[in-house]
Design a protein around this nucleic acid. Structure first.
Lengths: 141, 141
DNA sequence: TAAATTATGCAACTTTGTTGCAAATCTATA
DNA sequence: TATAGATTTGCAACAAAGTTGCATAATTTA
């Protein structure tokens, strides 16, 4: 993604264009997969305050630029949303996530649609999160 | 569940029968849904050390007595395993979890079988976690 | 370019989770 | 049922993760 395009993404979402936001968005664009808060801290060489990174991630989630991923080990992961994500809260409801046991990369499988789930009488579903754990295409023998 | 039955559950798993373990198991039996570490701390009136509760939960997970649930907000929840759970690591792989937006109770829907997911070429699934968020049967209007 | 708005960094704090170790409790057995 | 040996607990100390208030710095608007 071009620099201009990152600036536009921020402006489109009524966000000031700042160093930390640009850098963190760049990281998401470069990195093929989801990242934890600590990953971002390391990859930015502690150039930004921990608090700034927390607030930036929060802001991005609120705006629907990134989404959180529930993981089997309950760590918090973030990944870029595709254009289809709306900015109204839950953004991780329409695609499946895949966590590789081997390389530990978390993929957003945008092409895989969340399956239907038959719930017992009286349960009204709103959001369905699916996380698949296994071996990814790059780690097959 | 009777007291004797709780004692047996512990003995069956080669665990010493202690106050904290009995009390925590009782809580799980009484409570209709999943609990977080902090819930347990509160419900035991801080009678047991935080560390003891952490270690008890860990032990129970290892023995397959309880299992962890990945939640959309990435907090750690624990729930009792049904008899079908083996004690070999992943215990939350065969049923769907439901989190109620209203009362916040997390249900293990043992009757609902995890749906099949069609993955892209090269992705080998092992465990499929499904968490559904919505309104539960007790909170319908 | 100056005023107004917004974001950042710092300090201090809370919550959550971990580790080592001595004291207490539990289990098995004599 | 008393006791030796094993297991578990509680404490202290720490580490990691996340939050809040506020002054300063950067960005936007006009």
């Amino acid at each position: 993604m071009q620099i201009a395009s990152i600036d536009n993404l921020l402006k489109r979402n009524q966000l000031s264009v700042t160093d930390s936001r640009k850098k963190i968005l760049e990281l998401f664009k470069e990195h093929n997969g989801a990242m934890a808060h600590s990953d971002i801290e390391k990859k930015t060489d502690e150039k930004f305050d921990r608090v700034t990174i927390y607030r930036t991630l929060q802001t991005f989630v609120e705006k629907g630029i990134i989404h959180t991923i529930p993981t089997p080990d309950n760590s918090v992961l973030y990944a870029l949303c595709k254009d289809s994500c709306s900015s109204t809260g839950h953004h991780h409801d329409n695609h499946v996530h895949f966590v590789c046991d081997n390389c530990n990369i978390t993929y957003c499988l945008d092409s895989v649609v969340t399956p239907q789930v038959d719930l017992p009488q009286g349960f009204e579903p709103k959001v369905i999160d699916v996380v698949v754990t296994g071996i990814c295409k790059n780690c097959q023998v």
